[in-house]
Design a binder for these strands. Sequence first.
DNA 1: ACACAGGGAGTAACATGTTACTCATGGCGA
DNA 2: TCGCCATGAGTAACATGTTACTCCCTGTGT
Lengths: 252, 252
Amino acid sequence: MSPSSAAAFDAKERPGRPPTLTDRTIDAVREGIRNGTLVPGELYSVYRLADKLGVSRSPVRDALLRLAETGMVAFERNRGFRVVLPGARELTEIIAVRLALEVPAAERAAERAQEADREALESEYKAMLSAVAAGDETAFMMHDQRLHGLLLELAGNAHATRIVENLRDATRLVGTSTIRASRSLDDVYREHRPILDAIEQGDPRAAGAAMRRHLESTGLLLLREAARGHRTDADLNALWDNLVGLPPGPSA
Amino acid sequence: MSPSSAAAFDAKERPGRPPTLTDRTIDAVREGIRNGTLVPGELYSVYRLADKLGVSRSPVRDALLRLAETGMVAFERNRGFRVVLPGARELTEIIAVRLALEVPAAERAAERAQEADREALESEYKAMLSAVAAGDETAFMMHDQRLHGLLLELAGNAHATRIVENLRDATRLVGTSTIRASRSLDDVYREHRPILDAIEQGDPRAAGAAMRRHLESTGLLLLREAARGHRTDADLNALWDNLVGLPPGPSA
DNA sequence: ACACAGGGAGTAACATGTTACTCATGGCGA
DNA sequence: TCGCCATGAGTAACATGTTACTCCCTGTGT
């Protein structure tokens, strides 16, 4: 009896099986966070969200528990739940993990990319440009995610792909309003070019290095923006060096 | 009214708050898998497990959904759920991810270990020896896990720690009956010595290299055991090279 | 003005009810 | 003997009911 925002559902999933209400609720929450309907830090309840979506509490609870697993929301016993936006520490940790996984993935992708793979990558890259031109940040993020996802899939490690996807989820919120503030989408777009070039040329080391530069510069940007006012630059640099630091190569 | 195995619960968690039924159910499932009460591949239902544990279906369902998230169990719509034991592919992927995360962690740990940290590590190492002497495989696994956990915590990345813990979970089952079959606990125990030595000496590169050797040799062992009969050796080697491959260092 | 009990609103966690689906089984026709 | 279909048992997914807890208020005594 609340057809109000029942259309907030997204409806996707693999063929045959219809998506479960839990899955659709997960998408709805993501979307709610993205468009500002769900404010980080605010206290919500499963009750209210459930009838806002027009479903029962069960699938909503299941969905939120899954999101809590990745750190996107946090439950407080008998109080409610909050959307969590990651702090400086968490962001740095996430970047460190992504570096550990995506740099080798880029290397492997360069080793074994076929023509069809290269085309798929370029296609996403072009779609990113279109999004830049249209100023559509949401679309940009989506294609960025897909490009990184394709690279990881090319490397052949489904586990790593899933882990990175979850990590992106936790940071998506920060990235959204952040990037346009301090740097244009265009810069981020351009950072991907060297990665694709290296893959085109089948040069693993160059691909890995380009991916490292990309993740480090974008990550550092996100970190500075997220920590604005809460931490000193010295603090931030110490944090960064501790968790991301220097590659073991050029050490003594 | 089924006090039969109601004592299967474990009851742990941080102070103050009592653990939720969901948490205790997760432990109960883990234990059930470990001791053979829950057989991999067999079809079970939330109904039956719930009253076997003497609780309602809700916390059991929540627990299983969480475990499904890490791939430990899999639901089949309107059929039941199964305990999944990872195949060759998945095992190899997991090893690759662990290498990516734990090798750098060992390097960082060597950089910043304090006296107290070294003592904690040695303590676990000694506990592993006791377990070897007692032939207690369960205790051995626990201390092995703690040692790796301590190393990751030392590196300061809580996210990485959690990820590795989840990955271990998915493989614990394979490891259990496997190791004693093909190699003695003692060998695995000894492999940790070079890691601790390198940390003792504050040598990051040596620590990383030792960790890599350890994970590769133990991982390869697990893989061969798990794939016994299902895959040829050539198959396995191809898989391994694809996902784990060579470090980017000594390439052309 | 201020400390403080206690009552009540609201909640997550847990329990139970309902539905629509999957599949094994057995009977029936060929 | 074999194929086919109806039927029913068993299930996850979803809905709803219950409980014990956490706070926020509000009023009372000082």
